[in-house]
Write a protein that binds this DNA or RNA. Structure first.
Lengths: 124, 124
DNA sequence: AGGTCGTTTCAATAGTTCAATAAATATTGT
DNA sequence: ACAATATTTATTGAACTATTGAAACGACCT
């Protein structure tokens, strides 16, 4: 996956409206929803919804099919899977065993050598 | 997970610089990197890097520990796992069997037969 | 053809973000 | 305390994003 693809996806989901739309479509699965349904479900005015649907579509996160005068939208789950793979690529330098330790280390309380800390001056 | 948390995370990763930083830290795993290392690895000026590190930290995607005059940053992988769970929550209305069909349906080229379209109502 | 419905585009406004500079802060070693 | 290094903060202006109503477009039905 190219970087520009990933950032475009993240940018798409950085809006509350678009996040709601995407999650709603994920929930609906292969059935998808037409624009009007989405709009009434989430209470978003047509023009605004259209704007956000266009953004999501452009990012590839959702797809659209014309059904007569309706536009049916569906979530593109494979792209999300690809994105996750991109993010966790070469995770922990290829030592997945380390990954399990993350939860205890992200707060980084004791990860610093005790002696070094002890010898350092306190915040005067 | 709250919506605002998710959108903040996505917004954080919508910048190419921040995406690079995050992926670099994911690669480094529990070891992490100090700000200077990150900056020289990615060739980002200090002030700009600091701005992006702050954004990522605020979103909770990375954590920071002080080590003397160095700031060591680490990726917060558990949060990413939580985010993925939030996105795929109630996927396909709880029918995971449908999820496998996504790849063939997202492109929706012939998935909708012309005749069906002609006769079908939107909400099925 | 004419009327209606679903959806998108347009234009204007308001608010927000980004990167670069320069200055400030915090920590270390002398 | 002083100088040097590492990092953060503040400021600036240009560029971008979100929202809305009105208008336009395309597809359906009679």
């Amino acid at each position: 996956m190219e970087k520009i693809t990933a950032t475009t996806i993240f940018e798409s989901l950085s809006s509350g409206v678009r996040l709601d739309v995407y999650r709603l479509l994920v929930k609906k699965g292969a059935e998808g929803m037409v624009a009007g349904e989405i709009g009434s479900s989430l209470d978003v005015p047509p023009a605004n919804l259209s704007f956000h649907l266009k953004t999501l579509t452009h990012a590839g996160l959702i797809t659209v099919c014309q059904e007569g005068r309706f536009q049916r939208y569906r979530a593109n789950l494979p792209l999300m899977m690809e994105l996750i793979g991109y993010l966790t690529e070469a995770c922990c330098n290829g030592n997945p065993a380390q990954c399990g330790d993350f939860s205890s280390q992200t707060l980084c309380p004791q990860s610093i050598d005790t002696q070094s800390v002890m010898n350092s001056k306190p915040t005067a």
